[in-house]
Nucleic acid binder design. Structure first.
Lengths: 141, 141
DNA sequence: CTTCTATACTTGAGGTCGCAAGGATCATAG
DNA sequence: CTATGATCCTTGCGACCTCAAGTATAGAAG
């Protein structure tokens, strides 16, 4: 129960702040961060989908939006014509660097301020043990 | 990050199981449980909304569905014509008692099995400290 | 080469939810 | 009594996401 409640409350707050300041969804931000830390700042759409826990169709539509905003671009793959890469553009890079700052501050305020460093580790450990929560975490947020 | 991932994965799994077996959304279930434990098995719609962290409009539409299914009923309030109560019907009571059983088993499997009793308390404590997570918890799930 | 299966992606339809606006009712103050 | 403001609820609209189905490509087997 607490888990669900906490999530609903936190994501609503974080999402609305992110949206108000940067015009980004939490999912948008999530995708941009993944790309930011990816090698060559590019990823296959399918891997992107898995790492942010969306379906393939979800990623298609989300990237449509980010492409329209010029934050990411498509790129074909030479060795396999089925795959399309999503690449972070310069604008996208700037965007995520801006947004990351305020987003981390928001997280710190809503989340981090409640816990001691030790408790944070504990929480991370406990949450990390949950099934299916292991998709990709080459990221510091 | 882990928090968001864990939530996405868990709710998808729990929700699809609940839907497959009982044709209930996680939110539906949540509302039914709230009513089940409420005094007289009835609540004002607005309080229901706050306790499950939905907006008023969300509750209206969700209850439309549950009413259509005969699980809850509307009831006018004599002392204040603005408010409408949502009351659990007999069918709703049966439904929630059935669903609760399998849902708790699912939770146990996905969630509880990862932790010792002590760790559960720890996790509950940590999550409970998050802001806005304090809405209503007269419930054992 | 052809066929069969698996994978990557897109699209159409449908569900859930929030926001903003509007209607009804209540409470309070003049 | 009337005006004002607050509260409860509903509705139109749009955002986001999933599922199912369809297209295109790849790889392996006959």
């Amino acid at each position: 129960m607490r888990f669900l409640r906490a999530h609903a409350a936190l994501t609503r707050e974080l999402s609305s702040r992110l949206e108000a300041v940067h015009e980004l969804t939490l999912s948008d931000f999530d995708v941009l961060v993944q790309l930011y830390y990816a090698e060559g700042q590019r990823m296959r759409r399918i891997d992107l989908a898995r790492s942010v826990l969306l379906t393939a169709s979800g990623i298609t539509r989300l990237l449509d939006g980010l492409e329209a905003g010029g934050l990411v671009a498509k790129e074909r793959c030479d060795s396999d014509a089925r795959v399309t890469y999503a690449v972070l553009t310069k604008a996208g890079e700037r965007k995520i660097e801006e947004a990351r700052e305020s987003h981390l501050a928001d997280i710190e305020e809503l989340f981090g301020s409640q816990f001691s460093p030790q408790e944070r580790d504990q929480l991370a450990d406990l949450l990390g043990r949950l099934p299916l929560a292991h998709t990709a975490e080459p990221c510091s947020a």
